[in-house]
Design a protein around this nucleic acid. Structure first.
Lengths: 329, 329
DNA sequence: CTGAAAGCGCTTACAG
DNA sequence: CTGAAAGCGCTTACAG
């Protein structure tokens, strides 16, 4: 059995309260007894039991990240930023995965009720306005990433603007029949991007044609996969007339799309979305989302709120940046 | 304040023991009182407090994944498998990140002592034989992934064999001056792969030349990055005489290497390692590690051990499979 | 600076 | 089928 504060207290000839104090950095312990306790603790390999600490102090010292698809490029990058911040602040990280099998809201409530963490980072979790409002009752610090709601701190990217810029750049190159290689159309990021795409077209007197919005058939990860990009591009390349350029809703889909063009031996300019690290190496023009920064900043934001629950709610919206590489040459 | 079993017990006019029993699926509760309790619980939005449960029952119902670099392709894929298994078994997932800043062993001990989980999955954590042995004293279920030790269950891939096969396939194509594009040479996977590479050469009477083993200069993520691959390939392409083929220690480095070849306008056949999803789409020949399966299987293994601590230790070693695509045409 | 004691929200023999 | 009670390993006013 692992050592407890009782064991240490006994060996040191003090009370458990005193032992507890030295591990809580409470000032009020004499240097002598502090030293003695620390020595004994070291000797027996003592380490506080996290659950007991959590229960007694009502603090878990952990931040939970709630996310729908864990092995996803966007999430990976955001997580990198979260980790950097958390490590710096000495919090534990826990990850909770929302599956597609059950209702999202139910799962979200479930995880909040367990009180496994002191603060929550919701990444790409999309709920109705009303549902978000309902969650306020749990009265726990929550920061939204890639989602927006007036009652919570949030960090997101202007998807509409990003799609607008990407489409606009294609229009500026003289293209008019521009396909939109989409993922699951009902998903939040996609519907926003469709709007931006549409706006750019209309502003330039180019008719918006629904049939130019094409998705793949695989719905794994909502279609944000190489495969889905490949499938969609195959469809695009068989359209008549052939679109003269294509905006892809993610870089990873663009990778599949490029392969499709190669296989079909037809090439049209394409632009991606995200700027995952790899994009640079395959020469993919894209729209950069500062994913790592978003994670870092959101975590900072959450910790601030945990320390000061009454601070004003802040909405941070990044404007995505256009990155031009060889795929649109 | 959130509802507790005391609140429910009071409203239902029963003891807390009874309330506790219905949430623990203990058989011994009458249908009538069970129903009543469940109704009240629903009404007040009750959910057991995980920490209190954990402390009282000495069970945390969570599995912790301990990993050095979280945002890494290999890990991502393995994690996918872990999640599938865990979801099926209703365990919580926690992730602990070992940083390069402090000593690995210290951090590992630290996390074990907190008792945050009932079982641990160590991914790509490499320690001395003796250190692993020391950890046995914590007497907690641990399964090793991508590492091997006699005292623990483990799931790994035969790296030497994989490198051997890759190199051999290049030799079979008639190449003799084969470069090895490496990452951090002192890392476990790399040193194993160097061995396999060497073995293939020697078996075919090709001299082993140290200078053909080249790494990039960036050491971020131990060199398993696009950038590091790019840098290394630039060096390889300026060698005189030019190597006639190249084996890369990971697919992600191969992506960088391909870009370097394109920029330098020199192309030599290359083969990667891992078979990340993307490899298929860029036509990269590679050595497949069944990453997702490894995660799935390792988790199964860990859960089995958690349920039966005295079961025999098992070592599972996958043999990597060669996948030939256009990069070695 | 230190200790006794109550409490955090559960679980689980034990007794009935 | 149900309850009283001890215990899980800590924290934290309160009193001295």
């Amino acid at each position: 059995m692992a050592a407890t504060i009782y064991d240490i207290a006994e060996k040191a000839g003090v009370s458990i309260a005193t032992v507890s104090r030295v591990f809580n950095k409470s000032a009020n312990v004499s240097a002598k007894t502090r030293k003695k306790i620390l020595e004994i603790a070291e000797e027996v390999g003592y380490h506080p039991h996290a659950y007991a600490q959590g229960l007694a102090s009502r603090k878990t010292n952990t931040v939970m990240v709630v996310v729908p698809v864990i092995s996803n490029y966007f999430f990976m990058e955001v997580l990198g930023g979260i980790q950097d911040k958390l490590a710096e602040q000495n919090y534990e990280l826990s990850i909770y995965n929302i599956t597609g099998k059950k209702d999202t809201f139910t799962q979200v409530e479930h995880v909040l009720r367990k009180r496994l963490a002191e603060g929550y980072l919701f990444i790409s979790i999309h709920l109705d306005n009303e549902k978000w409002t309902q969650l306020k009752k749990y009265n726990v610090p929550i920061t939204l990433v890639d989602e927006h709601h007036d009652s919570y701190d949030s960090v997101s990217v202007d998807n509409k603007q990003g799609a607008y810029r990407a489409t606009k750049s294609l229009i500026n190159e003289g293209f008019t029949r521009i396909a939109l290689l989409a993922a699951l159309k009902s998903s939040k990021p996609i519907s926003d991007r469709i709007e931006g795409y549409k706006k750019a077209l209309l502003e330039n007197d180019i008719p918006f044609r629904k049939e130019l919005i094409v998705s793949g058939d695989s719905d794994y990860r909502d279609g944000f996969t190489e495969r889905s990009g490949y499938e969609a591009m195959i469809k695009i390349l068989t359209m008549d007339p052939l679109p003269d350029a294509c905006f892809c809703s993610s870089d990873i889909q663009a990778v599949g799309a490029m392969k499709a063009m190669q296989d079909a031996d037809i090439e049209i300019p394409i632009i991606g979305y995200d700027d995952i690290e790899l994009a640079e190496y395959i020469g993919l023009s894209t729209v950069r989302q500062p994913m790592k920064d978003m994670g870092f900043f959101a975590t900072q934001n959450l910790i601030d709120r945990m320390n000061n629950p009454s601070k004003a709610i802040s909405q941070t919206i990044y404007t995505p940046e256009l990155i031009i590489r060889s795929s649109t040459d």
